[in-house]
Design a protein around this nucleic acid. Structure first.
Lengths: 115, 115
DNA sequence: AAATATACCTTGACAGGCGAAGTATATTGT
DNA sequence: ACAATATACTTCGCCTGTCAAGGTATATTT
């Protein structure tokens, strides 16, 4: 998994909501898309992913429904709600702030490059 | 505290090690410096800070010694070790990778600005 | 018939953050 | 003189999120 999960923690919900901003999707697909986007460097552990879905649904940020009977296994699709969209924007902003703050705090000048 | 601690988690050790890269310091001072640098937006909770010191010392990344008797309360100073310096560089690199990955995963184009 | 891929779910352990409470000294305010 | 505040460190126990491990079920490939 290469990337320490404690560095992703706090962005889990944002990542899931971002995926659902595009279109309704289901756990397995979301995870595969993440894997593709990161060249296989990251993927949620299943338990983490499904725990997150439950948390987000209970909070009213997403809703779910069973997909049509399909060729492979059954799929539970998730859809982002209006409140979820608002939350996503808030989380995006939180990340922006946290990121800037962290950079300010961990930089000692040893890595001489602005990006 | 404005900033969600789950967004900082994973950078706690890096922030402390970064502080000690400059000079030996003690908990209270490190925390005040963080508060100053962030315009009061962030500060470790005491329990978090001292837990982190213990963790880092057990891992061999820092060492500690009691400061000279001084005008106010007694101070336990921390010093970064050679292994701690190497760890700091590693953590800095981990952060850089995680940051890029997160940005890639949470961006949907709704916030139209490159920074 | 077995292996693999798709797809979801739950339990229990573990680690880090932190509220709360405690200890001790020096300075500042009234 | 006494209280409040600032400095400074420590420990206990709870909470939350991650995740290893196990389970269920179907379709395709070997």
């Amino acid at each position: 998994m290469i990337i320490a999960s404690d560095l992703i923690r706090g962005n889990t919900d944002t990542i899931i909501l971002a995926s659902l901003m595009m279109k309704d999707s289901y756990g397995y697909e979301i995870n595969k898309n993440i894997s593709t986007k990161t060249d296989g460097k990251y993927e949620f552990k299943e338990a983490t992913l499904y725990t997150a879905f439950k948390r987000l649904e209970e909070a009213g940020f997403i809703t779910s429904y069973w997909g049509e009977q399909n060729v492979t296994a059954r799929r539970r699709y998730y859809s982002i709600t209006q409140r979820g969209k608002e939350e996503y924007l808030k989380l995006l902003n939180d990340w922006k702030n946290a990121k800037n703050m962290i950079e300010k705090l961990i930089d000692t000048g040893v890595m001489e490059n602005g990006q």
